[in-house]
């Protein structure tokens, strides 16, 4: 019984799918952002799994580039979360709601 790339990717995919599902189907902005964080996490897992297992790295390329990538994803995720939550607070001030179903003045 071995655990290889496919397994990690499968877990990553499932997490990604759950993240997508949450992002697409929760009406609270905060919950949606949680889904997005899950998606990012899933890709982090994929990056790391590829880094660990992939045999495609040619000479001169560093498998740990995946790790570096993840660092940036982490950074961006944090920044994005910050701005997103600020935006959520902003819309809350205007509408007293963060329910995405009700944030639909702009339509059609």
């Amino acid at each position: 019984m071995t655990v290889d790339l496919a397994h990690y990717l499968a877990v990553s995919g499932i997490i990604f799918g759950i993240g997508v599902a949450i992002a697409l189907s929760k009406r609270n902005v905060v919950a949606v952002l949680m889904g997005i964080e899950l998606m990012l996490n899933a890709s982090n897992l994929a990056f790391l799994a590829f880094s660990r297992f992939s045999g495609a790295f040619q000479d001169g390329t560093e498998p740990l580039a995946g790790h570096t990538f993840v660092v940036f994803v982490l950074t961006v995720a944090a920044a994005e979360a910050a701005v997103a939550l600020a935006m959520a607070v902003l819309i809350y001030r205007r509408r007293e709601t963060v329910d995405l179903d009700r944030i639909s003045v702009l339509r059609w």
């Binding site: 790339l5 890709s43 590829f50 040619q58 390329t61 995946g66 990538f69």
Partner: peptide, 13 residues
């Protein structure tokens, strides 16, 4: 970014 992950993983670059 998930797509990037696959590109990176598949091509190793």
């Amino acid at each position: 970014i998930y797509g990037f992950a696959f590109l990176f993983g598949t091509t190793g670059a």
